[in-house]
Design a protein around this nucleic acid. Sequence first.
RNA 1: CGGGGUGUAGUUCAUCGGUAGAACGCUCGGUUUGGGACCGAGAAGCAGGAGGUCCAAUUCCUCUCACCCCGACCA
Length: 409
Amino acid sequence: MKYSKLFGKTIKDVSSEETSINAKLLTRGGFIRREIAGVYNFLPLGLKVIEKIEKIVREEMNSADSQELLMPALQNKESWIVTGRWDTFDVLFKLRSQTGSEYPLGPSHEEVLVPLVKQFVSSYRDLPLSLYQIQTKFRDELRAKSGILRGREFIMKDLYSFHADEKDFDKYYKRMMEAYSNVFRRVGLDAILTEASGGAFSEFSHEYQVITESGEDEIIYCSGGDFAQNTEIAKVKEGKECDLGHGPLKKVKTIEVGNIFPLATKFSDAFGLVYQDENGKSNPIIMGCYGIGITRLMGTVVEVHNDEKGIVWPDSIAPYKVHLVNIGNVKYAEKAYEDLVNAGIEVLWDDRDVSAGEKFADADLIGIPTRIVVSDKLGEGTIEVKSRKEKDSHTETLEAFLDTASIRG
RNA sequence: CGGGGUGUAGUUCAUCGGUAGAACGCUCGGUUUGGGACCGAGAAGCAGGAGGUCCAAUUCCUCUCACCCCGACCA
């Protein structure tokens, strides 16, 4: 991609209304632009990142034997009355049609999926079943804040599992824990599996919490990894020695990037979702729910991976792998760009006729992992390679770079 | 939802009773080109919306809408 043609430019100043690190850097870098409170446009560069995250999530969910589907955002009011959530789900957006009918705008999809599954599942032979979607969710937050961390419209992966009994549910729950750990590790986050309250549906939940100053949540945890609880349920105090002797428990601010919890038969009972066992006896189906905020994940990565110059994307979700910069009118630049593209490397070429300083500043802000510079000083065929994470650069031939780059994939 | 604050050019902000100005960005010309270069010329604003006070309102008042911050809330 040639930067001169890319929709969405970097800007030096961002509105003083954006105070969070993620919104500031993503807006300045040309990844997002706010539409209304808690609602953002994702520009081409930002969409690239989202697509990378979604790909990782899909791979992990698919390998946990879940099937992807897509449910509607505009839902059925009746189903929400059946579960009692029409009046109790306080962040539910309610729309009125010109016919006078009311519709909920989906903040979650149990009310859609459970009746849908009921139409197809009636036998123990159909279980277990796991379904997920990546979809836009709506929550009527009284106060949207923290950039893309708490929006009123956001992209979420929500997965629901269906089981014949508790034992099978437990087995799958552990499997999803693994899948979730994989997702967060792959996107470059160190997420702490944390015990939390179960809210209205269950006795407990598990949250995946990432430590960062800008977080809204607070957890008490042991760095040894054997204990972590949201302070909303924690009965232990900060500083207490953990059971396995890893030192004092710490209290930190965190962002919740994912959560999983048992639904038991809450929704199965509401909609009469049952299956017949081998003996022809009807039993309620046990359910689990598993969520990952895709756009929140993107914001969290920025909150964690940045420096004074801008974003530092992890390789796995960077919008491009290589940021090519030509200094001055270098004839060799076009060929270098084509060679990189032909080698299958995702490259953003800053082909603008602007000063070197401006190009470097923008490259640092955008945060693509590898910067390649070509200039007359270096000569044809020679490039300067610099990692966004490191200060130092080195020169090598483009040919040599392409050899190693292709190995790296 | 309680408290506080802000709406002026594409963006960030000045002006604060006498119908608007800078910077960045943008357009054109020229000089530049290894860390956000420089010179010159130019385009760009019913001052969020409605009402009121006044000879006169971007400026004061009321209402309204939008947005931000603190808190509450947050499967």
